[in-house]
Design a protein around this nucleic acid. Structure first.
Length: 582
RNA sequence: CGGGAUGUAGCGCAGCUUGGUAGCGCACUUCGCUUGGGACGAAGGGGUCGCACGUUCGAAUCGUGUCAUCCCGACCA
C-alpha cells in the first residue's frame, strides 16, 4: 500500500471528547470516527485490525470444533417472550416496530435465536455435542456509552453456543472453550487472566471472564487474585476467608442507649468507643420494586451483585432517604437513616420486607444495632435473644485487597482489568422455558444442556491499544497490526533512496509482508510522527546512510533502532511475519 | 434516571458580558522554498453559528422551548 493512497487522516491533537487512551489514540491516528453516541465508523486501518482479530478467533474456534453461522441482527419479540427476557432485559434492549407495528429488537446477544435454530434442527442425542458461533455487530442501548470502542452501544462480538446432552458434556466443552480463548488472546498479543465471575443477566451457574490486566483508567473491573495459588475472581464474585476482627462486645447487658447524632458507622464508633466490627449495619435496597434489608458487619461493604443473586432479583438500587423514612413510618416507627434495624419491619410498598444478612454477622456477640429510634441504638444485643437470626444468611461481602484467599489463605491482591471475553455454563436456562428438546437414547424428550461463549472483537482491539502504547502512539502487537511494516524514504526526490525503498517494499510484499511505502513528499518528521502514531510494528527508514549501504531499522514495541543493510532489515520482518503464521 | 457542562469549517478553539460585514490554529488546494522527528512564505476553497419559536429595524450574541453530545454515580462483551 502506498501511504499517499491510504485512506487515513491523522490529527495533530487528541479529540476533546475522549477520556481513555485507546479512544484518544484510535481517533487521532485515524482508525475510527464517531457517528453518534457509542457508535463508530471503522475506517480502513481499524477494519484491517478487526479482521485480523476475527481471523484469529475463527481459526481457533474452528480448530476447537465449532461451526460458524450467521444469525439476523433484527429479532422478533415473540422469541424473547418465550424465554421471558422481553420483560426482564430492560432498556438496554433496543426495541423497535416495523411498518405493521410488530415489535422487534436489535440483537444484544443471541441465546433466543440459537435455541430456536437448535429446536428446529437438533432432534437427536446423536447430533450432539455441537457448538455454533457467529461474528457480527451487536447493539446494546447502554445507559452511558463511553470509552470509545471499549463500551460502545454497537460493537462486534463473537458469540458461540454449545449444546450437550449432559452436564459432563457441557463441562468438557466449557474447558475446551477456555483453552481456545487462552490461545486466541495469546495470539492477539494480550496477556489475559481467566477469572471467576458472576453470571449476571445472561444466567446460568458457572462463568469465567477473560481480563486484560491494565493500569489505565479503562480497566472497569476490579480483579482479585492470589499470587500463591491460581485463585482469581471479578469483584462481583470474589470471596475471601472471613476477615478476623473483634466480634464479641464488652457490653454486659442488652439495652437501648442514647447515641445522639450518630448517623454514620464512624460517628457511632467514636461515640461508643468501639471498633466498627461490633456494629451491624442495616442497608435498605429496592430490588425490582421490593424492599430488601441487607445486614452486614459495620467494617464491611455490600457487593450488590451478590445481594441481587441472594434474592434472585434483576434490578437493584439503594433506597432514598425519603423512602426509608416512609418505610419506617408505615411500620409504625419515627426514625431516619443511621438508626435503622431489622426488627419490627414487616412490609413496604405492598411487598413484605426481605431480610438478607452477610455471613459476617453470625459470630457477632453483644453487638450494636439500630432500633428504629432517632439518636438511639441497641447495645449488647444477641441473635436468638433480642433479635432473630435472619432467614437468608449468605456471602454479601465486597472483598477488599489484603483479605485472605479462600483457597490457600494468603492475602489477596487487586488489579484493574478489561473484560474481553467470557464463558458461561447456561444449563437448561433457555432450553427448558423455550421447550427446546431432543430425544435421548430411550426416546425421552430432554432439554439441551447449553453453554455460551463471548468475545468482544472490537473491545479486544481497543484493549490491545490500552496495553500497548507510548506517548507517541500505538504499538500494535504484530498479529493484529493493520500493516506489519512501513518503509520510509527520507527524501522522495532522492532517486537512490526511492529506489532502495521501493526495492525493500517489493521484497516485503513478495514474501507476504503487509507493508506500506510512505511515498508522500513530506518532511521526515511528519512521516516519523505518523508512523509512530499509527503504530506500524516495524519501520525501515532509507536515508543518507544508504551511501554506506545501511538503512535504519526500528522496532515500535521496544523503540530499539539499529543501522543494518536493507537485506537484513527485510529478513527480520519476513521472518517475524512468517513465524506468526506457523 | 439523578448531578455537572458544552453545541461556531474535518479537528482544536475564540467571539456572546455590552446585538450591527463570522474569526484564529491545524488539516485541505496552488505556487515558491525546505528535507532525519508534526518547517516557512504567499495566494485560495470550505461554516443555514445544533434546531424551533420569540424580542428587535437588525440575533452566533438576549428570552423560551427542544434536540444532541460529553463528564461524575448503578449495568455489560
Amino acid at each position: 500500500m502506498k501511504m499517499s493512497k491510504l485512506f487515513v487522516q491523522t490529527l495533530r491533537e487528541f479529540p476533546s471528547d475522549a477520556e481513555v487512551i485507546s479512544h484518544k489514540m484510535l481517533v487521532r491516528a485515524g482508525y475510527i470516527r464517531k457517528l453518534t453516541s457509542g457508535v463508530y465508523n471503522y475506517l480502513p486501518l481499524m477494519w484491517r485490525v478487526l479482521r485480523k482479530v476475527e481471523t484469529i478467533v475463527r481459526e481457533e474456534m474452528d480448530k476447537a470444533g465449532a461451526q460458524e453461522l450467521l444469525m439476523p441482527f433484527v429479532q422478533p419479540k415473540e422469541l424473547w417472550e418465550e424465554s421471558g427476557r422481553w420483560e426482564v432485559y430492560g432498556k438496554e434492549l433496543m426495541r423497535l416496530r416495523d411498518r405493521h407495528n410488530r415489535e422487534m429488537c436489535l440483537g444484544p446477544t443471541h441465546e433466543e435465536i440459537i435455541t430456536a435454530i437448535a429446536r428446529d434442527g437438533l432432534k437427536s442425542y446423536k447430533q450432539m455435542p455441537v457448538n455454533l458461533y457467529q461474528i457480527q455487530s451487536k447493539f446494546r442501548d447502554e445507559v452511558r456509552p463511553r470509552f470509545g470502542l471499549l463500551r460502545g452501544r454497537e460493537f462486534i462480538m463473537k458469540d458461540a453456543y454449545s449444546f450437550d446432552t449432559s452436564q459432563e458434556g457441557l463441562e468438557k466443552e466449557y474447558e475446551n472453550m477456555a483453552q481456545a480463548y487462552t490461545k486466541i488472546f495469546k495470539r492477539c498479543g494480550l496477556n489475559t487472566k481467566m477469572v471467576q465471575s458472576d453470571s449476571g443477566a445472561i444466567g446460568g451457574s458457572v462463568s469465567h471472564e477473560f481480563m486484560v490486566i491494565t493500569d489505565t483508567d479503562a480497566g472497569e473491573n476490579d480483579v482479585f487474585y492470589c499470587d500463591s495459588c491460581d485463585y482469581s475472581a471479578n469483584s462481583n464474585h470474589a470471596v475471601s476467608k472471613l476477615p478476623t476482627a473483634k466480634t464479641v462486645g464488652d457490653f454486659t447487658k442488652a439495652e437501648i442507649v442514647d447515641t445522639p447524632n450518630t448517623h454514620t458507622i464512624e460517628e457511632l464508633c467514636k461515640f461508643l468507643n468501639i471498633p466498627p466490627s461490633l456494629i451491624i449495619k442495616t442497608l435498605v435496597y429496592i430490588i425490582d420494586k421490593k424492599p430488601v434489608l441487607a445486614l452486614i458487619r459495620g467494617d464491611k461493604q455490600v457487593e450488590e451483585t451478590k445481594l441481587l443473586n441472594a434474592v434472585g432479583g434483576i434490578e437493584i438500587r439503594i433506597a432514598t432517604a425519603g423512602e426509608i423514612v416512609e418505610m419506617l413510618e408505615v411500620n409504625g416507627f419515627n426514625a431516619e437513616p443511621g438508626f435503622i434495624g431489622p426488627m419490627g419491619l414487616k412490609e413496604y410498598n405492598g411487598y413484605p420486607i426481605t431480610i438478607v444478612a452477610d455471613e459476617t454477622i453470625k459470630e457477632l456477640k453483644n453487638f450494636v444495632i439500630g432500633v428504629n429510634q432517632i439518636d438511639k441504638h441497641g447495645v449488647g444485643y444477641n441473635f436468638n435473644s433480642e433479635i432473630e437470626l435472619p432467614e437468608i444468611i449468605t456471602d454479601l461481602r465486597l472483598v477488599e485487597a489484603g483479605e485472605l484467599c479462600p483457597t490457600c489463605g494468603q492475602p489477596l491482591k487487586v488489579t484493574r482489568g478489561i473484560e474481553v471475553g467470557n464463558i458461561f455454563q447456561l444449563g437448561t436456562k433457555y432450553s427448558a422455558p423455550m421447550n427446546a428438546v431432543y430425544l435421548d437414547q430411550n426416546g425421552k424428550t430432554q432439554p439441551y444442556v447449553m453453554g455460551c461463549y463471548g468475545i468482544g472483537i472490537s473491545r479486544t482491539a481497543a484493549a490491545a491499544v490500552e496495553a500497548h502504547y507510548d506517548d507517541n502512539g500505538i504499538k500494535w502487537p504484530l498479529a493484529i497490526a493493520p500493516y506489519h511494516a512501513v518503509v520510509i524514504p527520507v527524501s522522495t526526490k532522492d532517486e537512490e533512496q526511492m529506489k532502495v525503498a521501493e526495492d525493500i517494499y517489493k521484497t516485503l510484499l513478495k514474501h507476504g509482508v503487509e507493508a506500506v511505502l510512505d511515498d508522500r513528499d513530506e518532511r521526515p518528521g511528519v512521516k516519523f510522527k505518523d508512523a509512530d502514531l499509527i503504530g506500524f510494528p516495524y519501520r525501515i527508514t532509507v536515508g543518507k546512510g544508504i551511501s554506506d549501504g545501511v538503512v535504519e531499522f526500528k522496532v515500535r514495541e521496544t523503540c530499539e533502532m539499529s543501522n543494518i543493510t536493507p537485506e537484513q532489515a527485510a529478513e527480520i520482518v519476513i521472518t517475524a511475519v512468517t513465524n506468526l503464521k506457523g
